[in-house]
Simulated assay, not measured.
Amino acid sequence: MIVSFIQELHARGVSHAQIAEQAGLPRGRIHQIKHTGPAPEDAFPGTGTITPATPLKREAGNARPVVAMGDVTAAKRVEDLARPDRNGNVLVFTGIHPQGALGAVDLLTSEIAPVWGQVGENRFPAVVGVEYDPAIGEPVRAEPASPLYRHEET
């Protein structure tokens, strides 16, 4: 808990020196406490299996359900983050366009430390704004379009 609090403050731009001063501890101790847990990129997906859920979309011409290739690509990228042990989490990525799911994954992989600093191990929804290159369908920029809200366990 204290590790996530320190990580959250640091992700918000508070320096280790400022945290140490407020806590009445040496700066080195704050740095040590912050780094006792797993790295954000290791802790975020958890230690269990990640089951990416890809949404079905309707084909325009005949309303047949299909899975967009961008959603499959996003699911594969999420799968690459996991260390499977069959006891994991479900992540659902969906967007107005498949590039939205790719952008969400891009945001998680490139900005994992600040995201982890805000949400830790809690569940959270996110709205992500994505700019993408239409020639290749890949995101060129992704950023949160809303605050990250933690779902507290009850």
Results as ranks from 00 to 15, higher is better:
residue 99 Q to C: 08
residue 96 I to L: 11
residue 141 R to D: 10
residue 95 G to V: 10
residue 83 R to E: 10
residue 79 E to L: 14
residue 133 D to V: 09
residue 109 T to V: 15
residue 104 A to C: 15
residue 118 Q to R: 12
residue 128 V to F: 05
residue 126 A to E: 07
residue 85 D to I: 04
residue 95 G to F: 07
residue 131 E to G: 00
residue 64 R to K: 11
residue 71 D to G: 01
residue 143 E to C: 03
residue 123 R to W: 08
residue 123 R to T: 09
residue 91 L to G: 01
residue 95 G to D: 05
residue 71 D to H: 00
residue 107 L to C: 03
residue 62 N to D: 15
residue 132 Y to T: 08
residue 122 N to R: 15
residue 135 A to M: 10
residue 132 Y to M: 09
residue 64 R to Q: 13
residue 72 V to Y: 02
residue 96 I to Y: 03
residue 66 V to M: 12
residue 62 N to Q: 11
residue 104 A to F: 06
residue 128 V to D: 01
residue 126 A to G: 08
residue 143 E to G: 05
residue 141 R to Q: 12
residue 135 A to P: 00
residue 121 E to R: 09
residue 140 V to G: 02
residue 121 E to L: 12
residue 105 V to I: 13
residue 73 T to G: 00
residue 64 R to I: 10
residue 98 P to E: 12
residue 66 V to N: 04
residue 144 P to L: 15
residue 95 G to T: 09
residue 93 F to A: 13
residue 83 R to T: 14
residue 106 D to Q: 13
residue 136 I to W: 01
residue 65 P to L: 10
residue 103 G to F: 03
residue 119 V to C: 08
residue 115 V to T: 03
residue 77 R to V: 04
residue 120 G to L: 06
residue 82 A to I: 01
residue 67 V to M: 12
residue 116 W to R: 05
residue 85 D to C: 09
residue 67 V to Q: 07
residue 81 L to I: 06
residue 143 E to I: 11
residue 118 Q to V: 03
residue 139 P to T: 09
residue 84 P to C: 02
residue 70 G to R: 10
residue 125 P to Y: 11
residue 136 I to A: 06
residue 68 A to E: 14
residue 127 V to N: 01
residue 124 F to E: 07
residue 67 V to I: 15
residue 96 I to P: 00
residue 77 R to E: 15
residue 131 E to H: 10
